[in-house]
Nucleic acid binder design. Structure first.
Lengths: 158, 158
DNA sequence: TGTCAATAGTTGATATGTCAAGTATTGGTA
DNA sequence: TACCAATACTTGACATATCAACTATTGACA
Protein backbone atom coordinates (compact mmCIF):
# COMPACT_ATOMS: atom_id res chain seq x y z
CA UNK A 1 0.00 0.00 0.00
CA UNK A 2 1.54 3.31 -1.12
CA UNK A 3 2.22 6.31 1.04
CA UNK A 4 -0.37 8.57 -0.56
CA UNK A 5 -3.05 5.94 -0.19
CA UNK A 6 -2.27 5.73 3.49
CA UNK A 7 -2.33 9.52 3.81
CA UNK A 8 -5.86 9.59 2.42
CA UNK A 9 -6.84 6.50 4.44
CA UNK A 10 -8.12 4.74 1.40
CA UNK A 11 -8.32 1.01 1.22
CA UNK A 12 -8.64 0.76 -2.49
CA UNK A 13 -5.70 1.31 -4.82
CA UNK A 14 -5.73 4.10 -7.38
CA UNK A 15 -7.40 3.32 -10.67
CA UNK A 16 -4.23 4.15 -12.58
CA UNK A 17 -0.79 5.66 -12.23
CA UNK A 18 -2.17 8.76 -13.88
CA UNK A 19 -4.84 8.99 -11.19
CA UNK A 20 -2.28 8.65 -8.43
CA UNK A 21 -0.12 11.31 -10.08
CA UNK A 22 -3.03 13.75 -10.37
CA UNK A 23 -4.11 13.31 -6.77
CA UNK A 24 -0.53 13.53 -5.53
CA UNK A 25 0.06 16.64 -7.57
CA UNK A 26 -2.97 18.50 -6.26
CA UNK A 27 -2.23 17.41 -2.73
CA UNK A 28 1.44 18.42 -2.88
CA UNK A 29 0.66 21.78 -4.44
CA UNK A 30 -1.93 22.42 -1.73
CA UNK A 31 0.71 21.76 0.90
CA UNK A 32 3.22 24.14 -0.64
CA UNK A 33 0.55 26.75 -1.31
CA UNK A 34 -0.51 26.76 2.35
CA UNK A 35 3.13 27.10 3.30
CA UNK A 36 3.47 30.25 1.21
CA UNK A 37 0.08 31.58 2.26
CA UNK A 38 1.04 31.30 5.91
CA UNK A 39 4.02 33.45 5.10
CA UNK A 40 2.34 36.32 3.28
CA UNK A 41 -1.09 36.58 4.91
CA UNK A 42 0.22 37.91 8.25
CA UNK A 43 1.39 40.88 6.17
CA UNK A 44 -2.14 41.63 5.02
CA UNK A 45 -1.98 40.25 1.49
CA UNK A 46 -3.17 37.06 -0.15
CA UNK A 47 -0.96 34.74 -2.15
CA UNK A 48 -2.38 36.02 -5.41
CA UNK A 49 -1.86 39.63 -4.38
CA UNK A 50 1.72 38.70 -3.53
CA UNK A 51 2.09 37.18 -6.97
CA UNK A 52 0.83 40.40 -8.60
CA UNK A 53 3.32 42.44 -6.62
CA UNK A 54 6.16 40.18 -7.72
CA UNK A 55 5.10 40.51 -11.34
CA UNK A 56 5.03 44.28 -11.04
CA UNK A 57 8.38 44.40 -9.31
CA UNK A 58 9.90 42.22 -12.01
CA UNK A 59 8.51 44.50 -14.71
CA UNK A 60 9.53 47.60 -12.85
CA UNK A 61 13.23 46.82 -12.71
CA UNK A 62 13.55 46.62 -16.46
CA UNK A 63 11.09 49.20 -17.78
CA UNK A 64 9.14 52.07 -16.27
CA UNK A 65 6.18 51.72 -18.61
CA UNK A 66 3.77 49.97 -16.29
CA UNK A 67 2.02 46.68 -16.97
CA UNK A 68 -1.48 46.53 -18.50
CA UNK A 69 -4.10 44.66 -16.43
CA UNK A 70 -4.58 41.77 -18.82
CA UNK A 71 -0.86 41.17 -19.08
CA UNK A 72 -0.75 40.74 -15.34
CA UNK A 73 -3.56 38.19 -15.67
CA UNK A 74 -1.51 36.43 -18.29
CA UNK A 75 1.60 36.23 -16.17
CA UNK A 76 -0.07 34.92 -13.04
CA UNK A 77 1.19 31.55 -11.82
CA UNK A 78 -2.38 30.39 -11.32
CA UNK A 79 -5.03 31.42 -13.81
CA UNK A 80 -7.12 34.11 -12.18
CA UNK A 81 -10.24 35.80 -13.46
CA UNK A 82 -10.91 39.03 -11.63
CA UNK A 83 -7.50 40.62 -11.70
CA UNK A 84 -9.31 43.95 -11.73
CA UNK A 85 -10.56 43.42 -8.21
CA UNK A 86 -7.24 42.02 -7.08
CA UNK A 87 -5.73 45.31 -8.23
CA UNK A 88 -8.56 47.30 -6.60
CA UNK A 89 -7.58 45.81 -3.27
CA UNK A 90 -3.88 46.35 -3.82
CA UNK A 91 -4.55 49.94 -4.81
CA UNK A 92 -6.68 50.48 -1.70
CA UNK A 93 -3.69 49.31 0.35
CA UNK A 94 -1.47 51.68 -1.65
CA UNK A 95 0.77 48.84 -2.77
CA UNK A 96 -0.08 49.44 -6.43
CA UNK A 97 -0.74 52.51 -8.56
CA UNK A 98 -2.87 52.54 -11.73
CA UNK A 99 -3.24 54.94 -14.59
CA UNK A 100 -5.06 54.97 -17.89
CA UNK A 101 -2.66 54.50 -20.76
CA UNK A 102 -2.50 57.68 -22.88
CA UNK A 103 -1.56 55.81 -26.04
CA UNK A 104 -4.37 53.28 -25.78
CA UNK A 105 -7.05 54.57 -23.48
CA UNK A 106 -8.61 51.12 -23.14
CA UNK A 107 -5.63 49.93 -21.16
CA UNK A 108 -4.90 50.61 -17.52
CA UNK A 109 -1.22 50.49 -16.67
CA UNK A 110 -0.07 49.30 -13.27
CA UNK A 111 3.00 49.98 -11.18
CA UNK A 112 4.15 48.79 -7.80
CA UNK A 113 4.51 51.62 -5.28
CA UNK A 114 7.49 52.22 -2.96
CA UNK A 115 5.28 50.88 -0.16
CA UNK A 116 4.69 47.73 -2.23
CA UNK A 117 8.39 47.36 -2.91
CA UNK A 118 9.16 47.74 0.79
CA UNK A 119 6.65 45.01 1.64
CA UNK A 120 8.19 42.63 -0.89
CA UNK A 121 11.66 43.38 0.36
CA UNK A 122 10.59 42.60 3.90
CA UNK A 123 9.30 39.24 2.68
CA UNK A 124 12.20 38.34 0.40
CA UNK A 125 14.34 36.45 2.83
CA UNK A 126 11.47 34.51 4.36
CA UNK A 127 10.21 33.61 0.90
CA UNK A 128 13.56 32.19 -0.04
CA UNK A 129 13.62 30.13 3.13
CA UNK A 130 10.05 28.98 2.58
CA UNK A 131 10.89 27.64 -0.87
CA UNK A 132 13.87 25.78 0.52
CA UNK A 133 11.79 24.39 3.32
CA UNK A 134 9.01 23.26 0.97
CA UNK A 135 11.53 21.38 -1.15
CA UNK A 136 13.80 20.09 1.57
CA UNK A 137 12.63 16.55 0.85
CA UNK A 138 14.35 16.66 -2.56
CA UNK A 139 18.06 16.75 -3.21
CA UNK A 140 19.41 19.11 -5.86
CA UNK A 141 19.45 16.50 -8.57
CA UNK A 142 15.91 15.36 -7.80
CA UNK A 143 14.71 18.95 -7.92
CA UNK A 144 15.98 19.27 -11.47
CA UNK A 145 14.25 16.03 -12.42
CA UNK A 146 11.06 17.17 -10.74
CA UNK A 147 11.07 20.46 -12.66
CA UNK A 148 11.71 18.64 -15.91
CA UNK A 149 8.86 16.17 -15.33
CA UNK A 150 6.41 18.97 -14.62
CA UNK A 151 7.45 20.73 -17.80
CA UNK A 152 6.77 17.50 -19.66
CA UNK A 153 3.30 17.39 -18.11
CA UNK A 154 2.48 20.95 -19.12
CA UNK A 155 4.00 20.80 -22.60
CA UNK A 156 1.17 18.98 -24.40
CA UNK A 157 -1.38 21.41 -22.96
CA UNK A 158 -0.39 24.37 -25.12
CA UNK B 1 16.24 30.42 -20.57
CA UNK B 2 14.02 27.66 -19.18
CA UNK B 3 10.55 26.77 -20.35
CA UNK B 4 8.73 27.92 -17.22
CA UNK B 5 10.46 31.25 -17.33
CA UNK B 6 9.26 31.71 -20.89
CA UNK B 7 5.75 30.67 -19.89
CA UNK B 8 5.66 33.41 -17.29
CA UNK B 9 7.43 35.84 -19.63
CA UNK B 10 10.05 36.60 -17.08
CA UNK B 11 13.43 37.87 -18.03
CA UNK B 12 15.10 37.12 -14.77
CA UNK B 13 16.06 33.59 -13.73
CA UNK B 14 14.58 31.96 -10.65
CA UNK B 15 16.31 32.67 -7.39
CA UNK B 16 16.88 28.97 -6.75
CA UNK B 17 15.96 25.52 -7.98
CA UNK B 18 13.59 25.31 -5.03
CA UNK B 19 11.86 28.47 -6.20
CA UNK B 20 11.46 27.12 -9.72
CA UNK B 21 10.12 23.83 -8.34
CA UNK B 22 7.56 25.62 -6.16
CA UNK B 23 6.31 27.85 -8.97
CA UNK B 24 6.23 24.95 -11.41
CA UNK B 25 4.35 22.81 -8.92
CA UNK B 26 1.63 25.37 -8.24
CA UNK B 27 1.31 26.13 -11.94
CA UNK B 28 1.09 22.47 -12.97
CA UNK B 29 -1.43 21.65 -10.28
CA UNK B 30 -3.53 24.62 -11.37
CA UNK B 31 -3.56 23.25 -14.91
CA UNK B 32 -4.64 19.80 -13.85
CA UNK B 33 -7.18 21.19 -11.41
CA UNK B 34 -8.83 23.26 -14.13
CA UNK B 35 -8.91 20.17 -16.30
CA UNK B 36 -10.84 18.26 -13.67
CA UNK B 37 -13.02 21.24 -12.80
CA UNK B 38 -14.07 21.59 -16.43
CA UNK B 39 -15.17 17.99 -16.27
CA UNK B 40 -17.31 18.05 -13.14
CA UNK B 41 -18.78 21.57 -13.10
CA UNK B 42 -21.09 21.02 -16.08
CA UNK B 43 -22.74 18.41 -13.85
CA UNK B 44 -23.54 21.01 -11.21
CA UNK B 45 -20.87 20.18 -8.65
CA UNK B 46 -17.54 21.73 -7.73
CA UNK B 47 -14.28 19.83 -7.61
CA UNK B 48 -14.37 19.74 -3.83
CA UNK B 49 -17.93 18.46 -3.81
CA UNK B 50 -16.82 15.79 -6.28
CA UNK B 51 -14.03 14.87 -3.91
CA UNK B 52 -16.48 14.50 -1.02
CA UNK B 53 -18.69 12.26 -3.10
CA UNK B 54 -15.74 10.04 -3.97
CA UNK B 55 -14.77 9.78 -0.32
CA UNK B 56 -18.29 8.79 0.60
CA UNK B 57 -18.53 6.26 -2.20
CA UNK B 58 -15.23 4.74 -1.13
CA UNK B 59 -16.44 4.46 2.44
CA UNK B 60 -19.83 3.18 1.37
CA UNK B 61 -18.56 0.14 -0.48
CA UNK B 62 -16.85 -1.25 2.57
CA UNK B 63 -19.04 -0.23 5.50
CA UNK B 64 -22.56 1.12 5.86
CA UNK B 65 -21.81 3.14 8.97
CA UNK B 66 -21.57 6.57 7.38
CA UNK B 67 -18.63 8.93 7.66
CA UNK B 68 -18.49 11.67 10.33
CA UNK B 69 -18.04 15.22 9.03
CA UNK B 70 -14.57 15.77 10.39
CA UNK B 71 -13.32 12.53 8.94
CA UNK B 72 -14.38 13.75 5.53
CA UNK B 73 -12.43 16.94 6.17
CA UNK B 74 -9.47 14.81 7.07
CA UNK B 75 -9.60 12.75 3.92
CA UNK B 76 -9.93 15.64 1.49
CA UNK B 77 -7.18 15.91 -1.11
CA UNK B 78 -6.94 19.64 -0.47
CA UNK B 79 -7.33 20.92 3.08
CA UNK B 80 -10.76 22.47 3.34
CA UNK B 81 -12.31 24.35 6.24
CA UNK B 82 -16.05 24.52 5.90
CA UNK B 83 -16.88 20.94 5.07
CA UNK B 84 -20.17 21.53 6.83
CA UNK B 85 -21.31 23.92 4.13
CA UNK B 86 -19.93 21.73 1.40
CA UNK B 87 -22.18 19.00 2.79
CA UNK B 88 -25.10 21.44 3.12
CA UNK B 89 -24.92 22.07 -0.62
CA UNK B 90 -24.56 18.40 -1.45
CA UNK B 91 -27.52 17.58 0.78
CA UNK B 92 -29.59 20.31 -0.89
CA UNK B 93 -28.86 18.61 -4.22
CA UNK B 94 -29.81 15.28 -2.64
CA UNK B 95 -26.44 13.79 -3.44
CA UNK B 96 -25.66 13.23 0.24
CA UNK B 97 -27.69 12.24 3.27
CA UNK B 98 -26.83 13.17 6.87
CA UNK B 99 -27.92 11.89 10.23
CA UNK B 100 -26.95 12.50 13.79
CA UNK B 101 -24.97 9.60 15.18
CA UNK B 102 -26.97 7.83 17.90
CA UNK B 103 -23.87 6.57 19.71
CA UNK B 104 -22.19 9.97 19.84
CA UNK B 105 -24.71 12.68 19.31
CA UNK B 106 -22.03 15.25 18.58
CA UNK B 107 -21.22 13.54 15.32
CA UNK B 108 -23.15 13.80 12.11
CA UNK B 109 -22.74 10.79 9.86
CA UNK B 110 -22.82 11.16 6.09
CA UNK B 111 -23.73 8.84 3.25
CA UNK B 112 -23.81 9.20 -0.48
CA UNK B 113 -27.31 8.78 -1.93
CA UNK B 114 -28.26 6.64 -4.92
CA UNK B 115 -28.54 9.90 -6.88
CA UNK B 116 -24.98 10.75 -5.83
CA UNK B 117 -23.75 7.33 -6.83
CA UNK B 118 -25.43 7.66 -10.20
CA UNK B 119 -23.74 11.01 -10.79
CA UNK B 120 -20.32 9.58 -9.94
CA UNK B 121 -20.91 6.61 -12.18
CA UNK B 122 -21.82 8.91 -15.04
CA UNK B 123 -18.51 10.72 -14.49
CA UNK B 124 -16.30 7.67 -13.96
CA UNK B 125 -15.21 7.08 -17.50
CA UNK B 126 -14.57 10.75 -18.28
CA UNK B 127 -12.58 11.08 -15.06
CA UNK B 128 -10.37 8.20 -16.03
CA UNK B 129 -9.76 9.76 -19.43
CA UNK B 130 -9.12 13.16 -17.89
CA UNK B 131 -6.39 11.74 -15.65
CA UNK B 132 -4.77 10.08 -18.63
CA UNK B 133 -5.00 13.25 -20.64
CA UNK B 134 -3.51 15.35 -17.84
CA UNK B 135 -0.54 13.03 -17.61
CA UNK B 136 -0.10 12.22 -21.26
CA UNK B 137 3.18 14.15 -21.26
CA UNK B 138 4.73 11.51 -18.99
CA UNK B 139 5.55 7.94 -19.90
CA UNK B 140 4.72 5.18 -17.44
CA UNK B 141 8.16 5.11 -15.92
CA UNK B 142 8.27 8.89 -15.51
CA UNK B 143 4.89 8.82 -13.80
CA UNK B 144 6.25 6.47 -11.17
CA UNK B 145 9.26 8.74 -10.66
CA UNK B 146 7.01 11.77 -10.45
CA UNK B 147 4.82 10.14 -7.80
CA UNK B 148 7.90 9.12 -5.83
CA UNK B 149 9.38 12.63 -5.93
CA UNK B 150 6.17 14.20 -4.68
CA UNK B 151 6.04 11.73 -1.83
CA UNK B 152 9.57 12.77 -0.96
CA UNK B 153 8.46 16.41 -0.93
CA UNK B 154 5.52 15.74 1.39
CA UNK B 155 7.31 13.33 3.72
CA UNK B 156 9.19 15.90 5.85
CA UNK B 157 5.99 17.88 6.39
CA UNK B 158 4.38 15.34 8.69
C1' DT C 1 -15.26 58.89 -43.16
C1' DG C 2 -18.75 55.72 -41.02
C1' DT C 3 -19.57 51.16 -39.41
C1' DC C 4 -18.39 47.18 -36.85
C1' DA C 5 -15.91 43.49 -34.92
C1' DA C 6 -12.24 43.02 -31.67
C1' DT C 7 -9.83 44.43 -27.60
C1' DA C 8 -9.38 45.87 -22.66
C1' DG C 9 -11.26 46.22 -18.89
C1' DT C 10 -15.26 47.04 -15.40
C1' DT C 11 -19.33 45.94 -12.93
C1' DG C 12 -23.25 43.27 -10.77
C1' DA C 13 -25.02 39.12 -9.11
C1' DT C 14 -24.15 35.14 -6.98
C1' DA C 15 -21.45 31.23 -5.19
C1' DT C 16 -17.92 29.85 -2.51
C1' DG C 17 -14.15 30.14 1.01
C1' DT C 18 -12.50 31.45 5.58
C1' DC C 19 -12.15 32.72 10.34
C1' DA C 20 -13.87 33.35 14.86
C1' DA C 21 -17.27 32.61 18.05
C1' DG C 22 -21.10 29.79 19.46
C1' DT C 23 -23.80 25.29 20.81
C1' DA C 24 -24.37 20.55 22.06
C1' DT C 25 -22.40 16.53 23.86
C1' DT C 26 -19.02 13.66 25.85
C1' DG C 27 -15.52 11.78 28.93
C1' DG C 28 -12.54 12.40 32.59
C1' DT C 29 -11.78 13.85 37.28
C1' DA C 30 -12.35 15.64 41.98
C1' DT D 1 -22.44 13.05 41.07
C1' DA D 2 -21.13 17.74 39.71
C1' DC D 3 -17.88 20.23 37.21
C1' DC D 4 -14.98 21.27 33.24
C1' DA D 5 -12.01 20.76 29.44
C1' DA D 6 -12.17 18.58 25.00
C1' DT D 7 -14.60 17.15 20.95
C1' DA D 8 -17.63 17.74 16.91
C1' DC D 9 -19.61 20.29 14.68
C1' DT D 10 -22.66 24.84 13.26
C1' DT D 11 -23.43 29.52 12.44
C1' DG D 12 -22.60 34.51 11.34
C1' DA D 13 -19.89 37.88 9.31
C1' DC D 14 -17.02 38.96 5.96
C1' DA D 15 -13.59 38.32 2.07
C1' DT D 16 -12.75 36.43 -2.16
C1' DA D 17 -13.80 33.98 -6.64
C1' DT D 18 -16.44 33.40 -10.79
C1' DC D 19 -19.43 34.21 -14.63
C1' DA D 20 -21.98 36.89 -17.66
C1' DA D 21 -23.29 41.21 -19.24
C1' DC D 22 -21.81 45.83 -19.98
C1' DT D 23 -18.89 50.16 -21.41
C1' DA D 24 -15.16 52.44 -23.68
C1' DT D 25 -11.87 52.55 -27.19
C1' DT D 26 -9.37 51.01 -31.10
C1' DG D 27 -8.25 49.38 -35.72
C1' DA D 28 -9.65 47.51 -40.00
C1' DC D 29 -12.46 47.75 -43.93
C1' DA D 30 -16.10 49.17 -47.18
Amino acid sequence: MGRLQRELRQNRPFQSTAHEAVVGLIRTADLVRRHMTALVEPHGITLQQFNVLRILRGADTEARDGVPTLEIADRMIEQTPGVTRLLDRLEAKELVRRQRCPKDRRQHLCWITPKGLALLQKLDEATLRSHEDSMKGLKTKDRATFIRLMEAIRAPHQ
